[in-house]
Design a protein around this nucleic acid. Structure first.
Lengths: 155, 155
DNA sequence: TATAATATGTTATAACATAACATTTATCAA
DNA sequence: TTGATAAATGTTATGTTATAACATATTATA
């Protein structure tokens, strides 16, 4: 059965050949780990999972380099507020890539990549650019407590 | 001459006594360093400046603890995307404290604390909370290039 | 003043990230 | 096909950010 992960990996491969980026086996396997992960992972966690999943060594140094590549290729995002990495949730779809927006739960640490309305994003962007500041396509990371955790935790 | 920094320090003192927080000399001096700084500083930089400014030692460990206190007291913010700390720019004024918003220049690393319109912030907040997610009062950190650097740099 | 709580000092170490150089692998012109 | 070049990966060392654990000093208050 060809599942969503395989489709994403295939799309990633295709996109790289199209744009002349070299998607090696190791890079692909790093992406695979992130696609399979239930949440964002640190570079060191990725290196560890690589070793156990593929029975092949990967230094943290290499993990960082591969993550840099995958981020350049827009296949992976880094959460700057938690020093973790995750696969872009739009690899397999046709969406144009917008400024990504993440909701990060500070209780269970799950992350949801959301899509705010174009209208709202435009207003936000305009307000900022009116001050003369040129936004680079960085992301919005918003912290709080997800629905599930609100029900469970009182603290 | 009683300058803005002294006024801010006094306000900080007053606010702490009012709310029962203990503003010690060292904590006050850490705040002073941030008020005098031209930009955000890392915890280690703060410890170093403390030593040279006050001719008194301060370990990084202590700097972190004092920063934690100052953040709890809402006198200092941490830039989560760059691991740096800065004094709240609203200590000396009467503004109610809203979700802080920072524009961070990736060229010259200056940071501007801005105030987006209440209207826009409300829309943003509502959009997010409609998904069931409870925003904690975290901040918005937006990266890009400031006006000055746009003129200077081509790259 | 005794005692309890809070703050600070000190040392060690964990976690995140990059520099520098060696080796291997892939690309491509001759 | 091979030799030259560039790109990727390996390896070691080190820099940077942050916290844990326990000792000592200071402050608040019963």
């Amino acid at each position: 059965m060809t599942d969503k992960i395989d489709i994403s990996l295939q799309k990633a491969q295709d996109e790289c050949s199209r744009t002349g980026l070299r998607m090696t086996d190791k890079r692909c396997n790093v992406l695979k780990i992130l696609l399979q992960a239930s949440g964002p992972l640190s570079a060191y966690e990725i290196a560890d999972q690589f070793k156990s999943t593929f029975a092949e060594s990967l230094s943290a140094m290499s993990a960082y380099r591969m993550l840099d590549f995958l981020m350049q290729a827009n296949l992976v995002h880094k959460l700057e507020t938690s020093n973790q990495y995750l696969a872009c949730s739009h690899i397999s779809c046709e969406h144009k890539h917008e400024l990504p927006q993440f909701l990060i739960c500070d209780k269970c640490h799950t992350v949801k990549e959301i899509g705010l309305s174009k209208q709202l994003l435009k207003e936000l962007k305009d307000s900022i650019e009116n001050t003369g500041f040129a936004l680079s396509s960085q992301q919005l990371e918003l912290h709080g407590v997800c629905k599930g955790c609100q029900l469970i935790h009182a603290d």
